[in-house]
């Protein structure tokens, strides 16, 4: 009954559709990031995207598109730095990420008078302000992400578990890693309005972290992670409507609760098996 009531409002319908899109796409990318030990990359790209958002707000262009451009450039830079070697790469990434936040804050302060620019909606998410045209943009981007993560899952998996073997099998490892980085950037932008740039990484990583506790295979982890992502997003949005809480934070708290439940179920399973 609760769900029916929520669906009476147009803005909530759009919010729930956006939530499902994000809940599905973010973990489908996150599973490869977790496997490669890059759980925090989405966080960093979220920082970089903020500069893009600020540029969009100040120049009166679509912040979604400028954020996309900034995040993609950041993603390519990250992957190239990683590929070049380990030394200094860590520091270079840190500089890039902090530069993204700092640039965003400074640029947005230069917004012309009469057009007050506010980063809050992008930092923490404002899912209920999603317009129909936003929704179409998100749907196209989400479809593009899923096309890559589902369609190319076998090669992405081969690279994620063993770059050396993938390279020896003739796969263009750098190219595939760049592709995954770009897809990560795109899903950062899709998730931006839903959970906010500061919490984007959580939706990519936490559902997968929960799923891998329970699953025994990569495939099951991926599928369960996407299911938990969608559940987190839908339950989070609905809860935020009734409890009058911010959508992004609520979604992430639901995801973390699911992670805690997964740990408890696993512990219980172990206890029963151990008896």
């Amino acid at each position: 009954m609760i769900a029916v009531e929520v669906l009476q409002y147009d803005f909530m319908q759009r919010a729930l559709i956006a939530a499902v899109l994000v809940g599905l796409t973010a973990p489908s990318v996150g599973v490869f990031l977790v496997q490669r030990g890059l759980s925090l990359i989405g966080d960093g790209l979220g920082h970089v995207a903020l500069t893009g958002v600020a540029v969009g707000l100040v120049t009166a262009r679509s912040p979604v598109l400028t954020a996309l451009v900034a995040a993609v450039i950041g993603a390519v830079a990250v992957e190239v730095v990683r590929h070049r070697g380990r030394t200094g790469g860590d520091v270079a990434l840190a500089v890039l990420f902090y530069g993204g936040i700092a640039g965003g804050v400074v640029i947005v302060s230069q917004a012309p008078p009469g057009r007050p620019a506010n980063l809050d909606a992008y930092l923490f998410g404002a899912i209920t302000t999603t317009t129909t045209s936003d929704l179409w943009t998100f749907a196209v981007l989400a479809a593009a992400v899923l096309l890559v993560t589902v369609g190319m899952r076998r090669v992405l998996y081969a690279v994620a578990i063993d770059e050396e073997h993938a390279s020896a099998s003739g796969l263009p490892v750098l190219g595939l890693n760049l592709l995954l980085a770009v897809v990560t950037a795109v899903s950062v932008v899709v998730a931006m309005r839903v959970v906010g740039l500061l919490l984007i990484s959580a939706l990519m990583i936490v559902p997968i972290a929960a799923a891998q506790v329970l699953a025994r295979s990569f495939r099951a982890t991926t599928v369960l992670g996407c299911v938990l992502g969608v559940v987190s997003a839908v339950v989070g949005v609905t809860t935020s409507f009734y409890a009058d809480t911010p959508s992004g934070g609520t979604i992430v708290l639901v995801a973390i609760a699911l992670f805690a439940i997964a740990l408890a179920v696993n512990a219980l399973r172990g206890a029963i098996a151990g008896r």
Partner: peptide
Amino acid sequence: PQRNTVVGGIPSTVREVVTAGLVA
């Protein structure tokens, strides 16, 4: 390869890892 990088991330079954060999 000498280094086994397969273990340690997300669980993979024996079948999944061996199937990855088919990308060659």
